[in-house]
Amino acid sequence: MPTYLYCIIPAGCDPPDGSRRGVDDAPVRELSAKGLAAWVSDTPEMIVAPSVARARAHDNVVRDAMSRATPVPARFGQVLATDAAAADLLAQRRDSLLESLALVTGCVEMTVRILFGSQRAGAGPAPRESGRAYLHWVRERQQARQSVADQAEFLRAALARAVEDAGVVREIRWARVAPGAQSVESAHLVPRTLLVRHRDVVRAAVERDHRMKVMLSGPWAPYTFCAASRE
């Protein structure tokens, strides 16, 4: 029976409760390998098609593991042929997995998103009187949009400086900004004991800048900080 992977935690932590169910309501169990423990379940197929319900189920298992230790969350959809194959991979990746566990231990992830999509970027409707007027309007609108995006980047950097200066973040990862994006994001790895302080620091920084909307979502398992690719 193929084995579906949710997360990896240090060996010796409490295993999942017998009642814990995962993707497609499969019972979740622990699989041990060389000082590591993985939370897994059986799955009938090697391919698990993504769905919102399955994504929620995956994350709920990871959150349950967070109640015992800080897990290294696995990306959705990783299926190994057997328990033995999963244990072999864990053993092969042991050093990098231990590094990831050390990085995130005691922390959660908070997503900081600065929204600027609703900001006015460019004035008025497109002119119709001439091609030149239209091109001028397009250029002005592009410049205005760039200015708004630059302001959002500035605020993102200001927030990062604020939480770093306050010592309430262990690491920050900056998301790429796709062309045409309406927000910029960063992921903050925050010690659990400093979550309230982190929130307060973000709030204080935002209060100094009324131009942008800022969302703070979480706490999440540290998905962003455990995105090391396979070796």
Partner: peptide
């Protein structure tokens, strides 16, 4: 804003997290 929360959930679960297997099927 539940839609954004759900977007965050999908972003984390589907696009992040460690990859140890070469058999991941959604990338």
């Amino acid at each position: 804003d539940d839609r954004l929360v759900l977007g965050d959930l999908l972003n984390h679960v589907l696009d992040k997290g460690i990859v140890i297997s070469g058999d991941i099927t959604i990338s």
